[in-house]
Nucleic acid binder design. Structure first.
Lengths: 352, 352
DNA sequence: GCAAAAATGATATACGTCTATCAAAAATGA
DNA sequence: TCATTTTTGATAGACGTATATCATTTTTGC
């Protein structure tokens, strides 16, 4: 009942262990005929390499790095926290993860940080990226060194990374649009949108998806041009206050960050407020959802993304195919399907 | 830079490897003083057992079983498919999973199937359970044999399992209620509900959650008593047709299965149809969502659940603490945030 | 048919842990 | 103090793979 080893395969194929090994790890200098025999034995015996033994043998350790924007953004704090958490649970598999903070949303800073990675001995890196051709050269160098590179949350130039781990932001915008449309119950209305900056690709994409759904499926709803906020909570608060004074505003949608400002403005308001949709579940958006100050949060499940990043990077480093993984999809939260507070989780963890 | 081994720990603690081993694997017959010294060395060196080496050494294999209701139910077909898929990707870690079909929703059948497990040599079992005290005895026997037991999708008696992997069905019903409420845009309405049977705990819970939210937050909406369908598509089709002839029906909500019937009835209808919410994303509900025959699907992400089952069972078997895992939460699907079709995925997999 | 090149076989060591055995040392009790 | 028990040390084999070396056999080209 025990699974076959490479020695079994060699015996079945009628070759020596050394030759079987040459085939399995394609070291070359093997006759086609032998390759075929070994391959056949592998399938007929159902041989699968024992990763535990393999890793043990080569003393493999996985050194991972995460390049995350610096700053006090609640969302990226959450990301950082999840990385540390995941890393702690991966030590027994010889996986180490280091978070490297980079200047936020600056091509040059990111470029430098990527170049700096060349000096370090990482096996895999996950990068919160930007769409800039300037990144292609340093990334190409990195990959030439054999480092696995994936884009995280925000994609890198397509050719410069092996995978992208993040949601489809057009779909996220469409989802928000659908929900805003539904919430009008067939009636007309007027939606004010907010964005950090349209240079941020994710903001532009969300907005495009949002507009698309509303114009196609809910033409009786007017979408106003976005107010630019630089993701600054103060700007958002002031602008929201202003918007709330206007008549006939039936919904608000912020594609970007800075939601604490938007929420603060809503908290002050009285009477019936517009239907409110924001992105990313963090402490204040969760609280606002519970307090009925906003209606919907579209979240990208950073915890799932980080888990996925670990898995994908390991698979890339081992050059094996990916295990089955649930799809990344924009998640809709209302006050009724919120996951337990992660802070609560941490306290539980400390108890035990 | 290489991580410390148990020999390093022994040296640092000033004891032999054998003693360090006795402490680590608490084999007893060690002086308190030595235990303390080893513990100290472990923390100061940051020693972590190398699981790869450990598993290799003890030749550990994980034999898992999944007890799943027999039948052609689309949802459980999906579950079965995910199990096979996950199992295929776990062979390299010496994990095997066997799906055992049991009589659907019958306490006696399940009881017998659990007893039958005693004859087999499984390390862990995931069971789509029922709330019945009759299951407690056979489960206790199983656990006494050292088998890890978890409830899957539908819980077992609390004391009889180590964990439950599934969503909170009250939350799922609340979520559905919230969405139906929102979709009325402040107007009144009348909702027809459908259920398989209120003996099924999950159906009853969903309905309760649904009612709770609507009565609390949307009192202008009337919730009609559920039509019982036995999860039979034909019954559902006939009943839906009947309901659609009635005036003023603004929404439909089915907490159970048999949605193909409901969808067939909707496909026939003309003019404006009620807002429709169903559970579980399967081929026909996905198609109906795309074809705008229904509006919302609440899904429990069986793929995530299966992955989780594998992880939790392995952790239980190894008696180690659980790695970080994203929460299980009822997922809301609209036509804009659907994951790629799993059939498409399979075809892709065949290509490569 | 011969030299050179390519392919194969045989074998040894290492990875870190588990498990077991046996002998030696230390602690305990009377 | 001596016998008994408890604790410790030393060590060896196994798990399955990776990697390397060196000798031997087979194939290739001319």
């Amino acid at each position: 009942m025990t699974s076959p080893t490479l020695s079994d395969v060699a015996r079945a194929a009628g070759v020596s262990y050394a030759t079987a090994d040459r085939v399995i790890n394609n070291r070359g200098n093997v006759a086609e005929k032998s390759i075929a025999k070994v391959r056949e034995a592998v399938t007929s015996l159902g041989y699968v390499r024992n990763v535990a033994a393999a890793n043990l043998s080569r003393g493999r350790i996985y050194r991972l790095a995460f390049l995350i924007p610096r700053g006090s953004n609640a969302f990226f704090n959450r990301i950082r926290q999840h990385i540390d958490h995941a890393a702690a649970h991966h030590v027994s598999e010889r996986v180490t993860a280091e978070v490297i903070e980079v200047a936020a949303f600056a091509v040059e800073g990111l470029q430098d940080s990527i170049s700096a990675l060349l000096e370090r001995d990482f096996d895999g890196v996950a990068i919160v990226g930007l769409q800039s051709a300037a990144l292609e050269a340093p990334l190409a160098e990195l990959r030439a060194k054999g480092v696995a590179v994936v884009g995280l949350v925000s994609d890198l130039p397509r050719a410069a990374r092996a995978a992208y781990i993040g949601i489809d932001n057009i779909a996220a915008g469409r989802t928000a649009g659908r929900m805003v449309g539904l919430a009008h119950g067939g009636q007309g209305g007027k939606v004010q949108t907010f964005a950090g900056s349209l240079d941020a690709r994710d903001h532009a994409e969300r907005l495009a998806g949002f507009r698309e759904v509303l114009s196609t499926d809910f033409p009786q709803i007017t979408v106003l041009d976005p107010i630019m906020t630089k993701d600054d909570a103060q700007v958002l608060q002031a602008q929201t206050q202003e918007v709330l004074t206007q008549q006939g505003m039936t919904a608000l949608y912020n594609v970007g960050a800075g939601n604490s400002g938007l929420i603060a403005a809503l908290r002050g308001g009285q009477g019936k407020r517009p239907f409110c949709v924001v992105h990313e579940l963090v402490a204040h958006s969760r609280q606002a959802l519970m307090a009925r100050q906003i209606d919907l949060v579209i979240d990208q499940r950073p915890d799932v993304e980080i888990n996925r990043a670990f898995t994908v990077l390991r698979a890339l480093i081992d050059a094996k195919d990916l295990p089955p993984m649930p799809e990344l999809v924009p998640t809709i939260y209302v006050r009724d399907n919120l996951p337990a507070d992660s802070l609560t989780d941490q306290m539980k963890a400390q108890d035990s």
